[in-house]
């Protein structure tokens, strides 16, 4: 029971991270290896908001998100824009290089020390039957589901969402219909990276912050995105809950090494049976 609750909580936290990755990929066809590093920046944002100004991580979301969105736009304008029309392998090199650059810059600026946010809430918990869930995890869980819901509505109901889906289906077709591709890309980056502004402060309250923390999640986010189907929205939710649950149930039964291998076993299985990902048909 505890394993199921923890798995669902972990899964929704993964979803919070993976959704931005899949959005950016779905619309721009760019694989952003530096995704985890933007998470790390957002986590530092949450940490410093708390340590310097005493801002609660939940409130810090409101401040960090716009900042991170701006960083996303800046990233598009300053770097990704130029990488759009080069071969895939070069794009990967750009984002991979960016990821290392950001890690080492963070190491220089913030040192390698772990930073912790300590609040009375950090260790509070709520009992659900025989299991418990820690309050910060619960908050992240709720935030994740609301963010996913919000993004879903934006994509389905708003004009921007319509345009984004159009670009995702066919870049050239959308351009021919008079859609400003560059503006759409800018928004995609703003939302994709901006979603980390929600994840960052909440994660900082759960975990710790150090320059390498983002890298812990990048790989898992990739697994989720591929399992769910690259660019698919509901796929992210299903993929992350699946990975989260499988990991924590495996941890309850077996050793940690096995549970760490489980997401990748799922990945291989999905690639064998349904190479396009579980939910990829939906997006098309």
């Amino acid at each position: 029971m505890q394993a199921v609750i923890s798995g669902l909580a972990n899964g929704s936290i993964y979803a919070l991270i993976a959704v931005g990755l899949t959005l950016v990929f779905g619309i721009m066809r760019i694989i952003n290896f530096a995704h985890g590093e933007f998470l790390m920046i957002a986590m530092y944002g949450g940490f410093f908001a708390w340590s310097a100004f005493g801002i609660d991580p939940v409130l810090a979301v409101v401040i960090v998100t716009p900042v991170v969105m701006l960083i996303g736009v800046g990233l598009y304008k300053g770097l990704i824009r130029f990488a759009l029309n080069v071969p895939d392998i070069n794009q990967m090199a750009v984002t991979l290089g960016l990821s290392m650059l950001l890690q080492h810059m963070a190491l220089m600026m913030f040192t390698g020390n772990n930073r912790l946010i300590t609040q009375p809430r950090s260790t509070a918990s709520i009992a659900i039957g025989p299991a418990i869930i820690q309050v910060p995890q619960l908050i992240a869980c709720v935030a994740s589901l609301s963010l996913l819901g919000l993004l879903y509505l934006v994509l389905r109901r708003s004009d921007l969402g319509l345009v984004m889906r159009a670009v995702s289906q066919s870049r050239d077709g959308a351009a021919l219909s008079g859609i400003d591709i560059s503006a759409v890309y800018k928004w995609a980056m703003a939302i994709g990276i901006g979603s980390l502004g929600v994840a960052g402060p909440l994660m900082a309250a759960i975990l710790y912050v150090n320059p390498m923390v983002g890298a812990l999640f990048t790989l898992k986010a990739f697994v989720i995105v591929i399992v769910g189907g690259l660019g698919s929205f509901s796929g992210v939710l299903i993929g992350s809950l699946l990975v989260g649950l499988a990991e924590s149930i495996a941890a309850a039964w077996f050793s940690a090494a096995i549970s760490a291998a489980v997401p990748f076993a799922i990945l291989l299985l999905v690639l064998l049976i349904r190479p396009e990902g579980l939910m990829s048909a939906r997006m098309r």
Binding site: A3, S6, A9, I13, I132, I206, L216, S248, A257, A260
Partner: peptide, 9 residues
């Protein structure tokens, strides 16, 4: 696993 966000299990 090192880097686990949740070890409540």
């Amino acid at each position: 696993r090192t880097g686990s966000a949740d070890v409540s299990t």
